[in-house]
Write a protein that binds this DNA or RNA. Sequence first.
RNA 1: GCCCGCAUCGUCUAGCGGUUAGGACACCACUCUUUCAAGGUGGUAACCGGGGUUCGACUCCCCGUGCGGGUACCA
Length: 495
Amino acid sequence: MSSAPPDLLPELVDLPGRRRLRFAPSPTGDLHIGNVRTALLSYCLAGEDGRFLVRIEDTDRERYQPEAVPRYLETLAWLGLHWDEGPDIGGPCGPYVESERLPYFQAAAERLVESRAAYPCFCTRERLDELRAAQRAAGLPTRYDGHCRNLTPEEVSARLERGEPSVVRLWIPPGETRWDDLVLGPQLFDNDSVDDQVLLKSDGFPTYHLAQVVDDHLMGITEVVRAVEWLPSTPKHLITYAGLGWQPPQFAHVALVLGPDHSKLSKRHGAQTVSEFRAMGYLPEALVNFLAFLGWSPGTEEEIFTLSELRRRMSFDRLQSSPAILDQQRLDYLNGVWIRKIPVEELAQRIQPFLPQANQEQLLPIAAMVQERIRRLDQVPGLLAFAFSEPAPDADFLRGKLTREEARAFLERVPELLGGDPAQLMDRLRGLAQQIGGGDPATEKKFIQAAMRVLRVATTGAEVTPPLPESIALIGNEAAARRVQRATRVLAEAG
RNA sequence: GCCCGCAUCGUCUAGCGGUUAGGACACCACUCUUUCAAGGUGGUAACCGGGGUUCGACUCCCCGUGCGGGUACCA
């Protein structure tokens, strides 16, 4: 018998989607890469005929940051993880913000108390702290001692009326709790090792434990994908489901993402939020591809996947149970692959934020010349610094392996070759270098290479740049000629 | 302290009782080339330790060790 109004805890109706998986972040800052990975897995595992939903878990009023919600949604959208139901678009199970669903949680808590699956608790924080300290000192596990389990209904209502602050605790029955985890296999917990968890806080808000159970049920979630850090609280959730008379979803506990030193990814490991990776010039395609392989693999030797391929291919039985270390070198490699994979027009647009000084007409040729040689978008400014500022190499740097005289003799005649068909520019330059080099076939090739380096340094101030003709085209023949003349002068003066 | 999870090259991983333990990143050579990339070719590199089970263990079981997680009116 339940005293909760039936409409507050509706029975499940038919909901869309064969599988229904959710991502339920707590909006407390920036979206962490580990969270995003579980979101990605949930999105993919839902499959093409499933639904992916987003629910905001804002039950902690102290850590809650309202401005984080739109940021999270924007990040998910940037990654391409589109949700079928969520706080902004609604859906059949709305609202999708837990703080707007308080009546459901309170009704569930009431129902649990009614059936003695849970009980009101009036213990103060001081008492609880002392209790735990004493247990620890005695080498015992730290757990609530059931002090308020058997208060009489009369005493409870008297204290409630007096306005004593109280919480609702889950009553863990004796016995054991088992389930078959989709990643870890059969799990068994002795209920003696499970604490009487607080379900409803004294401020009337549910804890994560209650909110998660109630909402996952009400939203028809079929599989819960979460990090192993939740493993020890799964028995509490299962017991709560049982107390409510509900069938629990299946659980898939995936391993954590660790930093290079094998500890939980944190600030000291550098980038850890999606925004940070984004600012470094990683493509969402690459991030998705990379993250998917942290804990999943197709079992073949394929390694480049689009999001939709991942969604088609991913299955629970190929999830990995061991933790993975975030290897940025591999991310860089994959990012390079994806940079080369997208159309150059697309790349031009994505480069734009990293090169605000470039105008629209410059963007496309720039994209074409950097596409093959960057692994991150934020490398573009460095590679193209010469296009936006005048280089000033000194004589020794200029000449490289040539003598000053050779270098000067070569550069002196370059300006006259700059005009004419750009496609033939390299031929003309090679011919000139050949002349200056004296035509010894044994050393000719090396001489030409050294001469080209001189010209590269003269026009760009750097040894590593996009191909010469393109670099010259980018700054224009006039500027190139001016730079070459300046370099010739520097060489002459030094000599 | 107590409870729990994990364990193949440095890293991501394949393997699911019998394999020359495969691929990828990184690294090192060579190659292509006007530089750098990209590409191509080749190379170095791994089953945490100890017991079982078995004709046979990287694969299954137990113990240890290591690493990680949980132990809140945070998620």
